[in-house]
């Protein structure tokens, strides 16, 4: 079975499940590239960090586009950040090689979330 390159674009903070979705495809021997846009990062639970590391192990990569990579995903053992930064134009060029491009969930919301949204 051919391994496919799949980009999953996350524009909304509530849809970081796109990382798990990419991992699901990595387990199926595809290359998963979740891209978190504009700093809409998940909370970096151990579960999330493990998923990000696992995608990397499976030759995929989690990217941040439009915001610096967060410190929480720095891996002291590997001495590198598990997430990599990519700018918009680089992302566009990289996605020209994609087999599938999946804008995941819903768009970014206009307003910052109120404190009631806190975990």
């Amino acid at each position: 079975m051919e391994s496919l390159k799949v980009y999953i674009l996350v524009a909304n903070r509530m849809y970081n499940d796109g990382v798990r979705s990419a991992l699901g495809l990595a387990v199926e021997n595809h290359y998963g590239y979740p891209v978190i846009l504009n700093g809409e990062f998940p909370s970096f639970s151990e579960y999330m960090k493990e998923n990000i590391a696992w995608i990397m192990d499976m030759e995929g990569q989690v990217y941040s586009c439009g915001a610096p990579v967060p410190e929480e995903t720095y891996d002291a053992e590997l001495e590198e950040n598990l997430m990599k930064e990519i700018d918009l134009k680089e992302l566009g060029e990289a996605m020209r090689e994609a087999d599938y491009i999946i804008p995941y969930g819903i768009p970014k919301q206009s307003y910052e979330p109120p404190p009631a949204c806190a975990e």
């Binding site: 799949v6 991992l23 699901g24 495809l25 387990v27 199926e28 599938y100």
Partner: peptide, 11 residues
Amino acid sequence: RTQAFHGALLD
């Protein structure tokens, strides 16, 4: 099902 069903969609 699991995310494997998404893999089946691609296949």
